[in-house]
Design a binder for these strands. Sequence first.
DNA 1: CGTATTTGACCGGCGC
DNA 2: GCGCCGGTCAAATACG
Length: 306
Amino acid sequence: MINKQTYMERQLEGVRMEDSIRPSSLSDHFLANNQFSAGMLDLYTESEKSSLGFTELLGLQDFAPSIFDIFQVSAPSTVPLPPTQTSAVSESPEGFNQPATPNSSSISSASSGAHNDEQSRPAEEDEEQQKVKKRLKAKKTSQKRQKEPRFAFMTKSEVDHLEDGYRWRKYGQKAVKNSPFPRSYYRCTNAACNVKKRVERCYNDPSIVVTTYEGKHTHLSPVMPPRPDSSVLPPTGAFDPAAVQVPRQNSQFSNLPPLNCGYFSYMNPGGVSVNERRFYFPAAPPLLGDHGLLQDVLPSLTKNEG
DNA sequence: CGTATTTGACCGGCGC
DNA sequence: GCGCCGGTCAAATACG
């Protein structure tokens, strides 16, 4: 089976999204009329993406849950996920239910017989080997989790790390090829939750932040006490439901499931209330042409371009 | 002092 | 086989 990311990258070779895909009228309109706009990318399978036209990529809907609700409802028990996506979830249960680096792994790696056979080696070298093996094991387990469903959001924002109601711990940052902006890696601070997210900026438009969520939260937002009347927006003080602008819906979008679109508002670190509109792009974002994260999640749209 | 972030090193996958 | 790249780890550092 072809590695998903690699396949996506291949599909994007030689493609200039800003030239061939950019929905000038729509995206420009959104960007021009909103301080913040966003696109949401749902990492569906190839067949599912190919069945959607560009207008559907925008996925404007009247009723749009927040991204948190999206994650919540995307649980198999609530919303019928695409078959492959659902299977991906079931294929990697450890990704949701187990810590990224369970203690057991380090124990087992430390007890490897190879080390016992090399007691003659210096102690520090032995420690290093244990470290290496420990890391090796963590790598393997983490790679298995790549099949978790992912959702990517395009957000026009000044801040890289958008407040989304959950607490995240940054565990890495990497320079992205063909992009001057680094990609940051975050993991949910909840020990029992293995949700990860990656944040990077579009090199074409530095004002656009691409956030990719991987996995589903197994817990409620730690900073959002439940509110009885906030079924749509995250019940957090950081979010202002009154500031939400609901995108007008076109009939052509109506065939999209509600979870495909989300939006919310939030207070940025500077205390300025910010309206964010989340536009759903099942296949591709209209504005991004970078060779970074988005290319990992947008294979089909570029497939026909070239 | 506890927690979060930074950052260099490391590994596996993949293309050539 | 080698090099590139994405993703992760973990020690060092920063911060409240």
